[in-house]
């Protein structure tokens, strides 16, 4: 066996040993609290590292609940990174002036796609572990298992967040079938007010919201264009600054509003047409969300 193979085996064994040791509930609770604080203050690489290191086999209910929340926090970490501040490296070579730098001075560009993939991995784990933690109270056996910030949210709402995060990632990666599957399980998302209530209740990251609206837009556009208009406007409205949609999605929504829909959307007060760049009427300032559909007159 070569030395590199030996080293690999030794490292793998170390990893297995580290992972195979169940963790004390109190220690894990502190880790979760620390990780939550890191996510809140935007130190996402540190949060991911801490959480991955903390994950351990769960041999009792308390540990199972903690493991579930660790996976959900990892989803949060990667979603916050994918739609805000990515830190995982891209596989692409540096561009432009970077080519001329010394190899050590090159900065590898970060990849939002990498975070979507990682978020979906942890979302899969969380969904897989949900069944066994549904009935476990965060203070089971008189022991506080979760930090305050996590203990106040029901396990069910936590799973709802996982689904919404997955929806945003699948929409970003353009896997429409997967978006449809998630929407089929949460039909409430297709009602604008309930959708917003759900996003607020589950504290979905701001950067993921436009992508959730895009996912719902694509879902309803074939059956209910007036409703699709509201999601299109909402997606464009929330896609600002650091939380931008891709150019393709932006163009798709804007073109649909101005050209591709079977309806035109007009201000009910002054009949001004909806402008995808403005979010209120350019004449009377009425919010675009209140615009009303009229059948589009097709040119003959």
């Amino acid at each position: 066996m070569s030395s590199s193979s030996l080293r690999k085996c030794a490292l793998a064994l170390l990893g297995v040993v580290a992972c195979a040791t169940p963790r004390d509930h109190a220690v894990m609770r502190v880790d979760l609290e620390h990780a939550q604080a890191l996510v809140t203050r935007g130190d996402l690489p540190a949060a991911a590292k801490l959480l991955e290191r903390s994950l351990a086999p769960a041999d009792d209910d308390g540990a199972k609940l903690q493991r579930f929340h660790a996976a959900v926090l990892l989803v949060r970490t990667h979603v916050a990174a994918a739609f805000g501040a990515p830190f995982l490296g891209s596989g692409l070579p540096p561009e432009g002036a970077e080519w001329r730098l010394d190899a050590r001075a090159r900065t590898q560009s970060a990849s939002p796609l990498a975070h979507c993939v990682a978020a979906l991995r942890w979302a899969d784990y969380a969904r897989g572990w949900y069944d066994e933690v549904q009935g476990i109270a965060p203070n089971a056996g008189g022991e506080t298992l979760l930090p305050e910030a996590l203990g106040g949210v029901t396990t069910r709402d936590t799973l709802a967040y996982v689904h919404l995060a997955a929806l945003a990632c699948f929409a970003r990666l353009r896997f429409e079938d997967r978006v449809e599957e998630i929407l089929a399980g949460i039909p409430e998302l297709t009602e604008l007010e309930r959708c917003d209530t759900l996003l607020a209740a589950t504290r979905v990251e701001d950067g993921a919201r436009p992508w959730i609206y895009v996912g719902v837009f694509e879902h309803v556009v074939r059956t209910d264009e007036p409703l699709a208009f509201k999601f299109a406007v909402h997606a464009l409205e929330t896609s600002t600054g650091a939380h931008e949609l891709g150019e393709r999605e932006h163009e798709r929504l804007a073109n649909w509003i101005t050209r591709d829909s079977h309806f035109v959307f007009k201000c009910p007060t002054c009949k001004t047409l909806a402008d995808p760049v403005l979010f209120s009427c350019s004449v009377c300032r009425r919010p675009t969300l209140e615009f009303e559909p009229e059948p589009r007159e097709t040119s003959k």
Partner: peptide, 24 residues
């Protein structure tokens, strides 16, 4: 009142995804 969902158990009905579709 307690849950943001109206249907009985929509979340449980949502299938777990394993990986990504290999054709698109």
């Amino acid at each position: 009142v307690n849950a943001p969902f109206r249907s009985a158990d929509p979340l449980a009905a949502t299938p777990a995804t394993q990986g990504f579709p290999s054709q698109k």
